[in-house]
Simulated scan of single mutants.
Amino acid sequence: MVTSLFWFLSLLYKSNNSYFSTHSSSSPQFPLGRRAACDIYWHGVSFHDNENIVSGQVNKFPGMVEMLRKINLSRAMRTMQELFPEEYDFYPRSWILPEEYQQFSAQIRMVKERDTTVSPTFIVKPDGGSQGDGIYLIRDPSDLKLTVGAQPKQAVVQEYIHKPLLIDKLKFDIRLYVLIKSLEPLEIYIAKEGLTRFCTEPYQEPTQKNLSHVFMHLTNYSLNVHSGNFVHSDSQSTGSKRTLSSVLYRLAAKGVDIKRVWSDIIALVIKSVIAVVPELKLHYQADIPPGKPGPTCFQILGFDILLMKNLKPVLLEVNSNPSMRIEHEQEVAPGVSEYVPSPVDEHVKVGVIRDTLRLMDPFNKKPTVNMISHSTQPLL
């Protein structure tokens, strides 16, 4: 089973526009489209080709990419924070740029006037950015980069999370994989195993002098992998990328209530999904109107979560197309690189793909999976 899944994943990387049939022994690719019906269609990046797919299941929801862009996610979270402030306190306070620049500037002025010794830090994230691209820290509105050429730059500026939980004096985040199996009823599966991605410089509270130290403040793997301190490890419990279970085991050994941590993380995931479901349903019904022949959809999401020193989880962002690579690039000679297996990625991601396919089994066999399931009544 594992061997065939490794092959399935290697095919997935070759083309972002490939389709796969779960009951085809050769799992053929159709970069120009397919004519034969399949039980499961695997889109590389986003939902498309809905005119030709009249049955089966597709691994993307229409509109998911748009809904999880940083601005739209922030808007959805803000709506829920206004309605249920205590329930949605896991998402950092955010402002949308450039339209809320004046509100942001006024807020900073008010904070500094109230206490001249306070100098809050903020993190700026481009709306369409990924893999840490374009993220930077500021302490004053004048440091914002509001344009690209002559065009306004769409971005979200958020309160920087102080007092993160550290391990080995390093800041880290959690990449948790979440399967949305259906929208109505809303059915969510959360993988019990995930990744932890570590910074590569010992953490210090942000100051004006160290704001540009991305290897200290930003946990993005795509940034830290270029650090000279990044450690590729064959062990699941050491190095710059580790399994979530190894980190939780280490915390449990120090007396941390891991059940409580998991409970808080699960609540964060469920509430986050609930926040985007109403808009997501509108996209779904626009592409696949009720009564019109079409596929059902499911999707794997990547939740990026930070644990604070008090063990409270904070949502950093949600990735609609999390990487399923199970290898990393490594320099084997000066100027010569090759891809080598990453045991940690293999352990986590192969399990996610395997259990997703079992859960979406078109023949309705009872799956044996390593995911936690959650269902709710329809929201709309």
Rank of each mutant, 00 (worst) to 15 (best):
S222I: 05
I258A: 02
P295Q: 07
I274S: 12
I270G: 06
P293V: 11
G228L: 13
N319L: 05
L244K: 04
Q236P: 14
G228V: 09
A267V: 02
P289V: 15
Q236G: 05
S233R: 03
S245G: 06
L301F: 07
K259T: 13
I274V: 14
A253D: 11
A286L: 13
S237C: 06
L251A: 03
R260F: 11
L251M: 08
A275P: 10
H226C: 07
S245V: 00
S272H: 01
A275S: 13
V277E: 09
P278G: 15
H283G: 03
D264K: 08
L282S: 11
S246R: 02
K292N: 13
N220T: 10
S320C: 10
S320R: 00
P290S: 15
F303H: 00
C297P: 08
S272M: 00
I270N: 09
D304S: 02
I258R: 01
V256H: 07
W262M: 04
Y221T: 03
I270H: 06
K312L: 08
K281H: 15
P278E: 14
V231K: 12
I274L: 11
K254T: 07
Y284C: 11
P289Q: 12
N310R: 10
S263T: 00
K281S: 11
D287Q: 15
Q299M: 14
E279Y: 12
V314A: 05
G255L: 01
D304K: 04
V276E: 03
P313D: 04
K309N: 11
S245Y: 08
K241W: 00
L315V: 04
N319A: 01
H226S: 10
P295I: 15
K259H: 12
I270M: 09
L248H: 06
Q285P: 05
V314Q: 10
I266Q: 13
K259R: 14
A275E: 08
H232P: 01
L251Q: 07
A252N: 05
A253W: 03
K312I: 11
L248I: 02
R242E: 01
V273C: 13
I270R: 15
T219E: 03
